[in-house]
Amino acid sequence: MILQCNDLVKKYINKTAVNGINFDAEKGKIYALLGPNGSGKTTLMKIIAGLVKPTSGTLTYKGNPIGVESKKRVAYMSTEPFFYNFMSVEDVGKYYKDFFEDFDVKRYEELIERMELGMKDKTKTLSSGLAAKLKIAATLARKAELYMLDEPLNGIDIIAREKIINTILESAREDSSMLISSHLVDELEKIIDNAVFIKNGSVVLYGDAEELRASHGKSIVELYKEIYA
């Protein structure tokens, strides 16, 4: 068990984003975090990443609280672009190399080329599609233990999606885990191990994807439509 959440709660002044989430993640598995905007999946990821502090509940990474040690091994990719404006694609690589021991420069270069980005491109001039690809390249070039990708297919054109899914699969190793959230459930359906359906800040359905399909007699996409209709 690489990650354990118990009764995790995050309250803001005007809303409760996470309302008692219990969730465990095992090594070597890909989890889909499913739910519409505002359901709490992004907040959950940010709490695990250490960017948001929970109101109550416990969260441990390999038995320890979130902190410097977990940040060394957790690679989080947010939905929004977050690179410094003054940086070039190459600078982003250097930054990651400076701070993350698990960053693989060769793989970064390979991914940049695959995504058809240029090392000298400035982050602020990138179109939203290319910026999204840069985020993925930087995050997946790390050999992390836990990857958290928030909407990795957002802003990616249909043709490039297959490339992205392949890149994600390449990083899905036996010793790593992935949390992927996406609206595009059908693109993810085949590659996930487990599905976690989040609604209004709590988990409403959870389990092995194949078992869920079998026991409910429908695909994950259809389950999604049912739950959130």
Partner: peptide, 13 residues
């Protein structure tokens, strides 16, 4: 700003 993620995701206290 969102670029804060760059700083606070790094393994630094």
């Amino acid at each position: 700003q969102k670029s804060s993620y760059m700083l606070f995701l790094t393994p630094n206290t």
